[in-house]
């Protein structure tokens, strides 16, 4: 079922496996945050990660993007072991992320924010001018075409989120990690952001999405992993996840699920 070609990239039924986490553990002091989670992600797939607050979703993201090192376990990306590498190396390898609480470069213009991604990500631009030209295109793509010369600190929340996505895309990722892009947006803005994510999906970029808004998860993910207290409790199609007994228990508690 699983084969490995000569370049070391494993195939499952001819689909390329992009990311694989094997038995990941992470604790902070005495608190076990991630307890043996394994997962995998195929190319062009969108994986939704859901779970109650404090279940370890963001920690999982931080492990993949190199902000935290797992206590044990391996992370394989494109056939290479990237466990324990620093965030900038992981970005250069092709994994880009956004932050739960947006972190644009506030004293830089929108254009320079994205140009930074283009200058230092995967396949970086040779000159600043080249980076800025491509950054300009990306800003238009996410719908910030008219905000190029506005400082990121002066943008609205939705605009900052779009900017952060544009900056992540500018690093030419093979895999995009989106950490609660929709948190704090009003319903109209959620629809707008949803259109943007669908657009990115149609570009063929693999995504891993942490989200609380169930509507979003149902809409965009091909498969869902549910995490509770640091363990995986469900994996499968999103429609099944909301019907699953364990998932409902994790969210609502045993008594309410009767």
């Amino acid at each position: 079922m699983c084969a490995t070609n000569e370049s070391g990239i494993s195939f499952v039924w001819g689909i390329m496996r992009l990311l694989e986490g094997e038995g990941l553990f992470k604790s902070f002091g005495g608190l076990q945050v991630i307890q043996g989670i394994s997962f995998s992600l195929d190319e062009r797939e969108t994986l939704g990660i859901i779970g109650p607050n404090g279940s370890g979703k963001t920690t999982l993201f931080n492990l993949i993007s190199g902000y935290l090192k797992p206590d044990s376990g391996n992370i394989i990306f494109s056939g290479k072991n990237i466990t324990g590498k620093g965030p900038s190396d992981i970005c250069k390898a092709g994994i880009a992320r956004t932050f739960q609480i947006v972190r644009p470069f506030v004293q830089l213009t929108a254009l320079d924010n994205v140009a930074a991604g283009r200058s230092y990500g995967r396949e970086p631009a040779k000159t600043l001018k080249e980076a800025q030209e491509e950054a300009s295109e990306l800003l238009r793509m996410v719908g910030l075409g008219n905000k190029e010369h506005i400082y990121a600190g002066d943008l609205t929340l939705l605009e900052r989120k779009k900017l952060e996505i544009a900056r992540a895309l500018a690093t030419r990722p093979k895999l995009l990690l989106l950490d609660e892009v929709f948190a704090g947006l009003n319903p109209v803005e959620v629809d707008e952001a949803l259109r943007l994510i669908s657009k990115i999906k149609s570009m063929g970029i693999t995504m891993m999405v942490v989200e609380h808004v169930i509507k979003v998860i149902l809409n965009i993910s091909d498969r869902v992993v549910v995490i509770s207290s640091g363990s995986k409790i469900f994996e499968g199609p999103p429609e099944d996840a909301i019907e699953d007994k364990k998932v409902c228990e994790a969210y609502l508690g045993e008594k309410y699920y009767a």
Binding site: V106, L108, S119, R122, A125
Partner: peptide, 21 residues
């Protein structure tokens, strides 16, 4: 490009490293 990296580090070190710096 070097100047841009410096300014990114000034604004937010973690975001800068997420950007490949």
């Amino acid at each position: 490009r070097l100047g841009l990296a410096m300014k990114c580090i000034r604004d937010d070190e973690e975001a800068a490293s997420a950007t490949g710096i």
